[in-house]
Design a protein around this nucleic acid. Structure first.
Ligand SMILES: [Mn+2]
Ligand SMILES: [Mn+2]
Ligand SMILES: [Zn+2]
Ligand SMILES: [Zn+2]
Lengths: 139, 139
DNA sequence: ATAAAATTTGCAACATAATTGCAAAATTGT
DNA sequence: ACAATTTTGCAATTATGTTGCAAATTTTAT
């Protein structure tokens, strides 16, 4: 189990360290996406803020996690599923943010639809975030 | 010209003050969306940081400007087109962020497409941001 | 036009978030 | 077990955002 996490680090040519194992473990068990602050709180064995910043940045560069944009200066991060490699993300799925519980969820099966842009614009990557009530909060 | 801006403030029941006129003027002449920092720099007659924060918040509440989400903790703002009223925005258009010049542009004519969500999710609002090369940077 | 009332502004103080350099600690390869 | 490399934590610094309050400005009433 924790073995899978070690492998992920190895596969991406990263040293396996306590902080990284711990942070990855948080992502694997989290109900939704995590913000820097969430990690700072949840990390059992306290990790320095700076280390968290650097770890998130490295994970993002290696294609292990991706960022989820927000309108309130609170970027969140979530695990990439598969084909994301260093420098080349392919997370073209929709994200959902619950207005009630404020959980942020990757809708891995809902792909971001293509849109026709005005002439001259060349699209590289699209992000779509839907706000509303999540499946749990609507019950 | 500046008269139109005064009218906009009046129409929204706001006192017309120097700061507000100046900031609105910036938006009307800007090539793209503006971040708080942009306004702080561009304001000819220096406006206090706090006033900028408060002005942006008020404009947003009144439906004069809307926020554009980002993946790097730097929300931008742009003018609303029309039917946005206090507390009820209707800016359901796509936004474009240029990877080269990093301009952020409202594609007012490109509507955010609907997506079918998994059962139980109730959508309220959608945002879509496309990255790539803008019309100017591709030439 | 003037004065009173209401709103907005700027300053100071504070709080939180993010970045950088560097030495100590941990990890990796031999 | 050792040397080389990488990562971590701390301190210092900078950037970003919030709040209370008195002074200034704008609006409304006279
Ligand atoms: Mn995702
Ligand atoms: Mn817009
Ligand atoms: Zn919810
Ligand atoms: Zn461009």
């Amino acid at each position: 189990m924790s073995e899978a996490i070690r492998e992920l680090l190895k596969k991406n040519h990263m040293s396996v360290t306590d902080s990284r194992l711990q942070i990855l473990d948080l992502f694997y068990h989290a109900p939704g996406a995590l913000a820097h602050a969430d990690i700072e709180k949840k990390a059992s064995d306290k990790i320095d803020r700076v280390t968290i910043y650097r770890t998130l940045q490295t994970f993002e560069e290696k294609g292990i996690i991706h960022t989820i944009p927000s309108s309130d200066n609170s970027v969140k991060y979530a695990l990439c599923k598969d084909q994301c490699a260093a420098g080349h993300h392919h997370d073209n799925h929709v994200h959902f943010v619950c207005d009630n519980c404020s959980k942020t969820i990757c809708l891995d099966d809902v792909l971001v639809p293509e849109v026709k842009l005005p002439g001259g614009f060349e699209p590289h990557q699209s992000n779509m975030v839907v706000n509303g009530l999540c499946n749990e909060c609507r019950s």
